[in-house]
Amino acid sequence: MAERTFYNEVLTDHNLHPDNKYHLKDPNLVKEGVNPSCGDDIVLQLKYKDGVIEDASFVGEGCAISQASADIMINLILGKTKEEAEHLSDIFLRMIQGEASDEEIEELEEGSALQDISHMPARVKCAVLGWRTLNEMLKDA
């Protein structure tokens, strides 16, 4: 028997009742992220000014992992500087590969609910979709 499912309450709750899934009014950064394996498709929207993420949201469709992960990510990066967001992103991506320390994972707060995905290689792309899209946006910002 495979290990128990990683669909914990944090994850299903963010999937069913996302805090940040809506169209942002007047975003100045918008980027689409696609994961062809699940057909996940999100559009990340940011209000980014003077190096700070002042507001953020996402819209789109996909599996519970991609949707919950993007929603949790936005809670984490709201009000953060580019460097702080990139720092969290770095921890998240390493956590998914099973390479982050417990102290680092603590910084991710609810994002830690996704750490067991490291045992499910087929779903890693779903979990990192939001973060990968954010990195691409900030790189050019």
Partner: peptide, 20 residues
């Protein structure tokens, strides 16, 4: 429920099915 979530939950119960 997204089919990939369906297949992942079934896998956790030891049932191999295809999604996509």
């Amino acid at each position: 429920v997204h089919p990939h979530d369906v297949a992942a939950i079934m896998d956790a119960e030891g049932v191999c099915v295809r999604a996509g």
